[in-house]
Structures are given as C-alpha cells and as structure tokens.
Nucleic acid binder design. Structure first.
Lengths: 220, 220
DNA sequence: TAAATTATTTAGATTGATCTAAATATAAGA
DNA sequence: TCTTATATTTAGATCAATCTAAATAATTTA
C-alpha cells in the first residue's frame, strides 16, 4: 500500500526517534537529503494516513501504527542483512545497500523463511537489534567510542552507520564486532584516540570514526 | 540509472520479442496493463535513450543495448527465483512475485554470489532459460500441450506464465517439471485434454491450462 | 526584550508515469 | 477499392515526489 518513498520516511522518523527525544522536520530533511518543504508536504500525507502526529511548527512523532510499520520495515532490512552475511557470505560492508532495496519487498514468506534459516537472530551484522514481529525492539546499551575515557577497555558492539566507506575502513584496520580496544590517550587537539588493540599494537582513530563506533566497557 | 518502470518496459518488450516477430505498442500495453498512449509516450523516452527503435506507426524493437539490458534484468529475475527455490526452499508458486522485485536490485555482488552458490544454473524453476552474462539465452525447444496430438507422450518442460494461481493448480494435480503425460483424447467441443499420468490415473486439463504448459515429445 | 538566526509552512513550478478523449494512420473485410 | 475496425499518436489533465523562493513562526543571542 505504502510506496517505497513513504516507507523511507517512516523508517527515517523511527531511526531518529531511537536516538533523539524530538524529531524535527529538519532532522528528517537532513537524514533523507530532501528539502524541508518536501518533508513538510509528506508529513501532511502521513498525518492523513494516521501514521504520524504533528502540530503546526512542532516536531513529528510516529503513531502506534506508524511505529509498527516502521519497525516491520527495519525488521525486514536487518533480517536481510543477516541472511546476506551469514548464509551467503557477503561482507558486512556490502549488505546495507542491498537490504535498503530488499526491505521494501512485500513477502512474509520470504522474510519468515530467512528468519527461520538464521534461527531467529536478535541482532544484525552491524550490531543493531532486530525488531520482533510485534515491532518490539530491545534497547541497546552502549556509548560511543568518542565518549570513552582514557584507560578504559572497551569492546565494539555496533556502528552508527553501515556505509561501505566506514566498514571498509574498519576491515582494513581489522576491527569487527567484538574487537576489544584500550584507550591509551585522547588528543585534546582533534579528539583522536590512541588505542591499544588485541594484538598489543596501537592504532589512532579520528574523532569522526570514534563517533561512529558503539562500544561497551569490559572488565580488565 | 533506469527506473524500475523503464526496466519493466524493457523486460516486457524482450519477453514479447521471444515469442513474436513483431511487437506492437498494443502488445506492450496489454502486457503491462497500461494504456497505449502511455506506452507510446514511454517509447519516445526509450528511443532517446537508444534502447528501442521504432518508426512512426510501426512496431518496436530493442536495440542491441536495450536487449542486453533487458536480458540482464531477466537474468537477475531467474537467478533469484532459482535461489529462492533451491537454497531457501520456497515453492515455485511463490518465487515469481518476489523475483519481480529483486530483479531491480543493482548489485552484481548479490547475483554473482547466488549464481555461484547455485553452481551456475541454466534454467529457472519454471523451466525458462537464464541469460548468461553476455545476454545470450538458449532457445528453448518446446510446444504447448494444447498443440499435442492424440496418442503422444509428452513431458512438461516449462510454463507460459509463473502465476501463483496456475502453479498452485499444478501442485494440486501433482504436475511439476519433468512430469510425463500421455494424450488419450482431445475433446472437440472445448479442446480439453484427457491425459494419462505417470501413475496410470487419468486427468482432464482445460484448454486454458494446456495453453500454459510447455512440453516436449518423448519416446515411448 | 529586541534583533538575528533558524525552522516551518505556503505558493508555485517541475518531472515521471499515468490517464482519457480526440485525431490520425494502418489494416481488414465486404 | 471503399468502408469499417483497429492501432498509434497527440493533446491536455492528474498524481506523487520533488524543488526554490518567499512568508511566517519559533528560538537563540546579544
């Protein structure tokens, strides 16, 4: 029923709601790289469909129905990513863009089967939780590597964006989910981090990269 | 580059060219269920793109480039169908509509990998040949069951349409690719066929169904 | 708090894909 | 061959999704 475009708006609002209290037209506009006027226009349509709520000049929120639809799209996206990596052997850097297209396929047979073949995974290859069939999603517990303190030992549990560019960079540095790193030093000038890796060698990561890495503290 | 819509026009012309010498605007119009005016309009665009040729009021033909693009879309479609049945265990009645969406995914990594996992299949689950990477497609040798003569022993090698409706009907009658049938009688009134099946039981198939079944003659 | 900045909305235009109705050309039949 | 039927093209309209520019509202800052 909903066009791919509409599904992408729902998904955008959902994702933004996961990390912010308030989602503005401008946030959606930046996220989808369309003008604010376009977003405003689409919000009128989504309000008529009862998938979003918004008072004039106020932030947008998904309705229960809108949130459920968004969660189902994200569920399909993440199950597809998982299938592509686990069952087809594609690298985590390649699956996001494919899943971006597969998420719009209307076929419960397909996604239920992938889910079953994967034995009902809880997380996608980038560490993000997969919403269940009711749209429930576990809340992740993490902080960004850029927020870590000197001396802390952390483990990578997810990434903020699944772009090929970031993930190829991480591949090159031998960083994957589960990789442990100790923060040796934080450069005050550019907020880059000096890290000790598992093999005792050291590595410098820019603040841009550290802002994209989700970590948890681990015991020493 | 090409929208899904444009890809569907290329595919439609390609498919029609496989079974007719001349492809008219009206043929495409019926095939895609859009008005002839819409097709005409789209042909102007495809001509500018150099993917079709057409003189005013004349039939349309794909250019070499247009044909190659069409073949690549059909290749993706058929590889996907094969993967869905062979590797994921979906029934042949369910895969066409899914492949209809997957065929537009722009990812050689994905389709090359499916092709490899399938060990480079030559036919899809409905018996249609898969174009190779150069766009070459083997010419199938078959006739329709509706053309078979009384007494002939035939084997199902493909279907004219991959609709869920037809394929569920065939499932119910235990008819699949490879099934052999002997034509016992052709009713002159409605052109229905009385067939002897592999298990020696008999079955009547309407001319509508016989028109959709591709068979070859086999030795007795 | 007044001014400046930022965000949202409105207005009007564009593009892609579609339609119907009318005009024109081609093909088929008497 | 003339008439009729069918096919194609043209013209003009609509809808979804986008844009820019301008107007308006809300927020921030001096």
């Amino acid at each position: 029923m909903a066009s791919n475009t509409i599904e992408n708006y729902l998904k955008a609002i959902y994702s933004l709601q996961q990390k912010q209290e308030k989602v503005n037209i401008t946030d959606v506009s930046k996220h989808l790289e369309v003008s604010a006027a376009t977003v405003n226009n689409m919000m009128q349509k989504l309000k008529k469909m009862k998938w979003v709520k918004q008072e004039k000049y106020q932030p947008v929120t998904l309705t229960v129905e809108g949130e459920k639809r968004a969660a189902m799209i994200i569920r399909k996206h993440r199950i597809a990513e998982m299938y592509l990596t686990e069952k087809m052997g594609l690298g985590w850097e390649n699956v996001h863009s494919i899943a971006e297209e597969m998420e719009h396929i209307d076929s419960s047979i397909l996604f239920d089967r992938m889910d079953e073949l994967l034995d009902y995974p809880k997380y996608d290859p980038h560490g993000s939780p997969i919403p269940n069939k009711d749209g429930k999603i576990v809340k992740m517990n993490f902080h960004l590597l850029s927020q870590a303190e000197t001396g802390s030992l952390v483990q990578l549990v997810g990434v903020e964006d699944s772009s090929k560019e970031l993930l190829e960079f991480l591949n090159q540095k031998m960083i994957r989910l589960g990789t442990e790193m100790k923060v040796l030093e934080i450069a005050s000038f550019d907020k880059s981090l000096l890290l000790e890796m598992e093999e005792k060698d050291t590595l410098v990561l820019s603040s841009k990269v550290c802002n994209a890495l989700r970590v948890i503290e681990v015991e020493k």
